[in-house]
């Protein structure tokens, strides 16, 4: 049994400790967002956040995740109440097949929560590990920038309210 905290909820999962996180998310917790793309840490389709940092869940054994916080696209919002990145990807129609998109969003989330005003060059450099075969890159860039703006507006609004 491994105790795993995903999107704020703790789960006891009964898997071999060498099982990569990806298979636990998809197989045990039935979360769809993180995708199998290569299993080799080469494409980013499986990217999730661990304690706020992007990791390739396909090469991260579940064993090392005891006590750490895992966030997936499901933790960013829902169909009914999409988070800023989700909203921005919908508004920019930033998907063709969309298979790479969940991984793109999680890597982008790691950047934006540090720096919601990241420049084009910063975004490109940060997104470098993730591959998209459909050539959706331009819209992915636009969606990340839009999400950054949404986050800035939201945080300005909440600062306004609380301060």
């Amino acid at each position: 049994m491994v105790a795993l905290t995903v999107n704020g909820k703790t789960h006891q999962v009964d898997v071999d400790p060498d099982t990569p996180l990806l298979y636990v998310l998809r197989g045990e917790l039935e979360l769809n967002a993180a995708k199998y793309g290569c299993g080799l840490g080469q494409c980013g389709a499986c990217t999730v956040l661990v304690d706020g940092e992007p990791v390739f869940s396909c090469v991260t054994p579940v064993l090392v995740l005891e006590g750490r916080k895992v966030t997936t696209v499901e933790g960013l919002g829902t169909l009914e109440a999409p988070g800023p990145l989700q909203q921005a990807f919908i508004e920019e129609q930033a998907a063709q097949c969309g298979y790479c998109i969940a991984g793109m969003m999680m890597r982008a989330q790691a950047l934006l929560q540090r720096n919601a005003a990241a420049t084009d060059e910063e975004i490109k450099a940060h997104m470098e590990p993730n591959l998209c075969r459909c050539g959706t890159h331009m819209r992915i860039m636009a969606a990340i920038k839009r999400a950054g703006k949404l986050m800035q507006t939201a945080s300005a609004a909440s600062t306004g309210r609380t301060g």
């Binding site: 979360l31 499901e74 169909l79 919908i90 998907a95 969003m105």
Partner: peptide, 18 residues
């Protein structure tokens, strides 16, 4: 707006893999 995109960005079951 494409009808398939919302599920794809929120972790819905969108693919055969899901």
């Amino acid at each position: 707006r494409r009808i398939d995109i919302p599920a794809k960005v929120t972790g819905g079951a969108a693919y055969i893999q899901d």
